[in-house]
């Protein structure tokens, strides 16, 4: 499983807050694993997190590991800094990644590599785990790179 010590974005952006519903997800990323919701009632994957399965209304949602690869469903490249931490920082790429092997759920991250690279919808990508060990409450983000 690949991890990175370099950071996609500068320090000072908000960290993911601690919440009971999403704790299994963030506990998973600390172990370099992508863990999302899967319904024990109907077996379907679900994301973003919710207390109930939107298909069968089971509250019995499991958290299961999913292969950390997918394809770019959409993308954007912000230029205008909307947060003080991004002042003077060059543009960066955000991707919405679809996981075809998990009912096409979508997850968000940054696309690593040249921030000015051409981005194409449908491109295969794989996850790179980006630990923030120095944070008061350490966390790990899930970033993406073009699959080799």
């Amino acid at each position: 499983m690949s991890t990175t010590t370099s950071r996609a974005l500068p320090a000072g952006l908000p960290a993911p807050g601690e919440e009971s519903m999403t704790k299994p997800y963030w506990d998973g990323t600390r172990k370099n694993r992508l863990i999302v919701q899967r319904c024990r009632g109907c077996g379907h994957w679900q994301w973003g997190p919710e207390w109930i399965c939107h298909r069968c209304h089971a509250f019995d949602l499991a958290w299961e590991e999913v292969a950390p690869r997918g394809r770019i469903y959409s993308w954007e490249r912000p230029h205008h800094p909307v947060h003080p931490a991004l002042q003077g920082h060059p543009p960066y790429v955000i991707v919405l990644v679809e996981l075809p092997h998990a009912d096409n759920i979508r997850v968000i991250g940054n696309l690593l590599g040249d921030p000015l690279q051409e981005v194409k919808i449908g491109t295969a990508v794989e996850a790179v785990f980006e630990p923030h060990d120095e944070a008061d409450r350490p966390y790990t983000l899930v970033q993406w790179r073009i699959a080799v």
């Binding site: 996609a8 974005l9 952006l13 908000p14 960290a15 993911p16 807050g17 919440e19 999403t22 973003g48 912000p78 205008h80 909307v82 947060h83 991004l86 960066y92 955000i94 997850v107 968000i108 991250g109 940054n110 966390y139 983000l141």
Partner: peptide, 10 residues
């Protein structure tokens, strides 16, 4: 929590 750390906030 799934957007802001990636610079997705406005």
């Amino acid at each position: 929590a799934f957007g802001a750390p990636y610079g997705l906030m406005s």
